[in-house]
Design a protein around this nucleic acid. Sequence first.
DNA 1: ACGCAGACCCATTTTTTCTAGGCCTAGTCC
DNA 2: GGACTAGGCCTAGAAAAAATGGGTCTGCGT
Lengths: 298, 298
Amino acid sequence: MAVNPPRPSLPSLNALRAFESAARLGGFKQAAAELNVSAGAVAQHVKALEDWCGGALFIRHAQGVSLSSLGRQVLPEFVEAFDAISAASQKLRSLAAPKSLNIATLPSVAQLLLAEWLPELRAALPEARISVTAMETPPNLAREPFDLSIFFGREAKDEGAILLAGPDHLLPVCAPSLAQGVSGFEDLMALPHISDQFWPDDWAHWAKAAFPEQSYSGTGPSYSLYSVAVREAVNGGGVLMGHQTLVAPLLARGDLVPVLPVKVPLELNLTLWRNPVLAESALLEELVARIRELAMRG
Amino acid sequence: MAVNPPRPSLPSLNALRAFESAARLGGFKQAAAELNVSAGAVAQHVKALEDWCGGALFIRHAQGVSLSSLGRQVLPEFVEAFDAISAASQKLRSLAAPKSLNIATLPSVAQLLLAEWLPELRAALPEARISVTAMETPPNLAREPFDLSIFFGREAKDEGAILLAGPDHLLPVCAPSLAQGVSGFEDLMALPHISDQFWPDDWAHWAKAAFPEQSYSGTGPSYSLYSVAVREAVNGGGVLMGHQTLVAPLLARGDLVPVLPVKVPLELNLTLWRNPVLAESALLEELVARIRELAMRG
DNA sequence: ACGCAGACCCATTTTTTCTAGGCCTAGTCC
DNA sequence: GGACTAGGCCTAGAAAAAATGGGTCTGCGT
């Protein structure tokens, strides 16, 4: 008795993080996505925290939750605290491995642009260790361990955002051999339409903007990786609805050609974001400058 | 493929906490005590963190560890961040249950003083829910969920410290019946000496200061709980080396009497600490004021 | 030289955490 | 107004993480 009775303690850090995430993003589901767990796990953490403090942090509605007044009062502190943890971890990472530069980007950008640029980047920064991580959704740079991210954004007005290319355009492209004799919408429709699962509406969007009077109902093979779709197009497997930003190197090289000279602008700009919590680093500066250069050139 | 590839993520919060604790306290063992786990667990967490960032955070010596330069660079950020987490949690607790007041104290203080005071405290603060948690070592109020702590301290110059009683004194006490006819050191030595395992040197200390020319080699029953020792003394089981601060109520009531009129001062002051991270609270103010009053009176 | 303190390593066990799938509720869309 | 859907809740069981414990190693201080 009285040896080491369990002392009351603060709630588990993971529970606090689940609360912070759910409160900041406005839902257990979004928090679950951010934390890479199931929504149920988040719900359990939040419940544990509510049990600990004895008050409700969220008001449960049939569709979603909203912060209770208690939750609203404490949220800012937790956001700041977890921001501080993340920032400290990032600092630790960058101090421990100052030569390693981590880039997060879309699989398509990684395979079609970065793979193109990397030899030159490596040559320009021989001492750096550049890693590329492909992902579908942009990382929260304040919370995930990357130095840079390259994604398509609507407008690059966030802090640390750098426009890499003007508005993206859609244009149908295919292998040179396949393009011969195609001169109008009908000809184009007669060919197989390659599409990508990440941008499933590209064909419809292009058709509607380019040939509003025609009705488009396309079918064709679809791929989850844009680069595979591109490869198929290069191999003569059909016509791909090309994102100019991404297929530019292949157009320049002549591997692909525009089928019809009709470009449709999109509200997507290839944008580079720098991690806002990281300290200045000459190496990183240099990498950013090189990428800008390469993007401009392409 | 490319569905949801595991994204690199920040290190686990528990690993970061283990690092922070070990670095702040200067050893895995101390960190283990603070976190209520074994030292091996702390070592594993720290190792995981070192693997994550790829650098050593501690330099291992045969006896203990010391911070590496990397560890030294990032420690302050982590300390601040975890302080912020703790503060936010405390705020959550106090907002969710504003009427509950948690006091941490020594078992002896809880049983001999607080138990004495509680009826009056409850009467003075009827709406409050006062909880008392007994523990051997003072809590880190910035990190553990208590509003107040009451412990013996050398000098109350920390922030938030309030002296509850002047320097503590040792004096031998026993039941009135047993005290009769005891008039000197010899008489006292002839009686059973009750001692407490938390302060095992009380008798020797008192004897050396009060009767330096005599040699003391005492034996007698020893109890892990001071209050049990006190009860034994009240029941006539022997002479207890009393801490004046603690036995004052019993002396006042006549349950115990001084055996010899020889008090020896100690460098221990019963001190009350207020949680430094908590916001102002009228209820807490009132409780502090009442406790001061009761302590002064006793 | 010896004993000791403190940390490491690793297999095992315990605890925590996560998932899966069914249920419930309230908007929404024919 | 009935079906559908989104978003959370609950519970059991599975999976993963963390903790323990004991054997080992290394220098420091007697």
